[in-house]
Computed example of a mutant assay.
Amino acid sequence: MLVRSLQAALPALLPRSAAALSTSSARRGLEELIVLPPKEDAQLPTSGRTWEAADLRKKSWDDLHKLWFVLLKERTRLQAEKAMYRQQQQRMPNVTRVAKVRKAMCRIKLVLSERIKEHEDPNIRMELKAFIDGM
Rank of each mutant, 00 (worst) to 15 (best):
A53P: 07
A20M: 12
I34W: 13
K59N: 06
N123E: 15
L44R: 14
R125W: 11
T23P: 02
R97G: 02
F69A: 08
M126L: 10
R28I: 13
R115M: 04
L72E: 13
E114W: 12
R49E: 10
S24M: 02
Q79W: 04
K58E: 09
A42Q: 15
A19Y: 04
A18C: 07
E32G: 09
L36E: 10
E120T: 14
R86S: 12
V3S: 06
V95P: 00
V95L: 06
Q79K: 07
E114S: 10
K39D: 12
L78R: 07
K39S: 10
L56N: 02
K58V: 03
K109E: 08
I132N: 01
S25E: 07
P122V: 08
S22P: 00
Q87Y: 05
K66P: 01
Y85V: 03
Q89N: 09
S113G: 02
K58Y: 04
A8T: 14
I108M: 03
P93Y: 11
L10N: 02
V70N: 00
A83T: 08
H119F: 12
D41V: 15
N123W: 01
A130Q: 14
V35R: 08
L14H: 00
Q88W: 09
E40H: 06
S24I: 00
R75P: 01
Q43A: 14
M105E: 04
N123T: 11
R115H: 11
P38T: 15
R4C: 05
L71I: 06
A130L: 08
N94C: 09
Q89D: 10
L71R: 01
K58P: 04
Q43C: 07
R125T: 14
R16Q: 14
D41E: 13
L112Y: 01
V98I: 05
A130C: 07
K103Q: 09
C106Q: 11
L64K: 01
S60I: 07
A130D: 11
L14E: 00
A26T: 04
H119L: 11
S25N: 11
R16K: 15
R57Y: 00
R27A: 06
K117E: 10
R28W: 14
T50Q: 05
P122Y: 08
T76Y: 14
K103N: 12
Q88A: 12
R102Q: 09
A19E: 07
R97N: 03
Q79H: 05
I132E: 01
E120V: 14
R57M: 01
H65F: 03
E127Y: 03
R16W: 09
R27M: 10
F69E: 06
N94H: 11
S24L: 02
E52P: 00
L64W: 00
K66D: 05
A99Q: 13
L6F: 11
M92T: 08
S25M: 05
L67P: 00
K58D: 07
R102W: 09
E31W: 13
R102E: 09
D121S: 05
Q90V: 15
L78I: 02
D62K: 04
L36Q: 10
P93K: 12
N94V: 10
A26W: 05
Y85K: 08
K117G: 04
Q87N: 07
K109C: 03
D63A: 05
R49M: 11
S47N: 04
G48C: 05
N123L: 03
S113R: 00
L110K: 03
F131E: 06
I124C: 07
K58H: 09
P122G: 06
T76N: 09
K109M: 05
M126P: 01
Y85E: 06
M1K: 09
Q7W: 13
L10E: 07
Q43H: 10
